[in-house]
Amino acid sequence: MNSLNVLNDTLNGTKADKHEKVIVLIAACIDLGIRRGSEIISRLSDLGYDKGHIALLLKHNRQGTVDKLWIRDNDGLYSLVKD
């Protein structure tokens, strides 16, 4: 079982909703070196999450938006925003 599966199982044991779970899992992907949007979407959809929802959260939480949890460079690779 990989670390994303373990994290997903842990999140499923919490009160977090799907929206919150996807945000945490996207951040985990980026931290694990899974940085291309299509790969993030594929990995999380394999865990049962909706591809459209994942894509929406990737876009919504990029730098330049209100939440700014991650940035996407010119090569399409995501990185976490550092405080």
Rank of each mutant, 00 (worst) to 15 (best):
K21F: 02
T14W: 09
L80W: 08
K68C: 06
L32C: 03
V6Q: 12
L57R: 08
K15N: 15
L56Q: 15
L77W: 05
R35M: 03
I23G: 02
W70K: 00
V81L: 15
S42R: 14
S38F: 11
D73R: 07
Q63L: 13
R62L: 11
I71D: 14
D31E: 05
I54C: 04
V6R: 10
D17Q: 08
T10P: 05
G52D: 10
G48E: 04
S42T: 11
K21T: 06
G37K: 01
H60G: 12
L4H: 07
D75S: 14
T65K: 13
L4G: 05
N5M: 13
D50G: 07
N74H: 08
L57W: 09
G33T: 02
L69S: 06
R72M: 14
R72W: 06
L25E: 00
N2S: 10
G76S: 10
K59C: 11
G33N: 03
C29E: 02
R72S: 12
K18T: 14
Q63H: 10
L58Q: 03
D73Q: 07
V66P: 04
D17I: 13
N2Q: 07
E39W: 06
I40D: 01
A27D: 03
Y49F: 13
E20V: 13
V66L: 12
K18A: 15
